[in-house]
Amino acid sequence: MRTGRRGNVLPGVAAGVAAALLIGFVLLPVLAIFLRVSPGRLVTALHSRVALDALGVSVKTSLIAVALILVVGTPTAYVLATTNLRGRGLILSLLELPLVLPPAVAGIGLFAAFGRFGLLGGALRAVGVEIPFTQIAVVMALAFVASPFYVRQAHAAFAAVDPELLGAARTLGAGPGRAFWRVGVPVARQGLSAGATLAWARALGEFGATIMFAGSLQGRTQTLPLAIYGEFSGGDLRGALAIAALLVVVSAGLLVGVRAMLRTGRAALEPRWIRSSTLTSASR
């Protein structure tokens, strides 16, 4: 890249300034939260009933939502990436729709579909299920909003798997399911984990669809973002800041944890023949 021409310093400086601006813009609000909340105050917030309940609800519902997304999204992404299914571009676009939909639209849509008087409301009621204002509603709101983050990444990861690897597995007698599970998933694992992390982070931060479809009840449907809003609109700015700091810590902590798991997991789990071929196929 570097050609040694001295006249090209200006673009480099401009890019540096742009990068510094962007980094500052992203980091400043996060730093400001911690500058306004003393560590002692953060510990107190950890003991507040509202924060603890919200943390419990958030962790539980977001993990269930991500698990559901993984179970349903992984085979979907695999099929879309590895077969020549007709209309798969359209299907992929449809699955990505929640990315561009405002969360408030998601919330009202979930009501229209699964609410008591929604499209499926009567059928659900017939089997004794009412979704709005329950933790199921929270999980659904999170899954709806977060699923494209996983499906997109998983699709890209499966698309990057060398078709010859899957072909070889089939030649050696593996069925399509076995090829998916024993070759596709292990090879694409890094991309899948990255997608799951992104989806998880998005689920943890979900606000609009949740507050509309699931309401807000401490210990039941009040997630961390809802608790932040509740404290803020209730006039308790310090409480809101403390819960926000908690959310930053939890999100960043899990992100780091997943990355560390990825690093150690790759060396331990990967059979040698796959490792060598991913190295060749993944070298950019």
């Binding site: 009501f111 609410g115 008591r116 008087f117 709005p132 204002f133 329950t134 699931a214 309401g215 807000s216 009840l217 401490q218 039941r220 449907t221 009040q222 809003y229 509740g230 609109s233």
Partner: peptide, 21 residues
């Protein structure tokens, strides 16, 4: 029996009007 604490009275009214509450 409370299933949701709403931010304002409009939120309460909407949920009753729509029959969801």
């Amino acid at each position: 029996n409370v299933v949701s604490n709403e931010d304002n009275v409009e939120g309460v009214l909407t949920k009753v009007e729509s029959g969801e509450a």
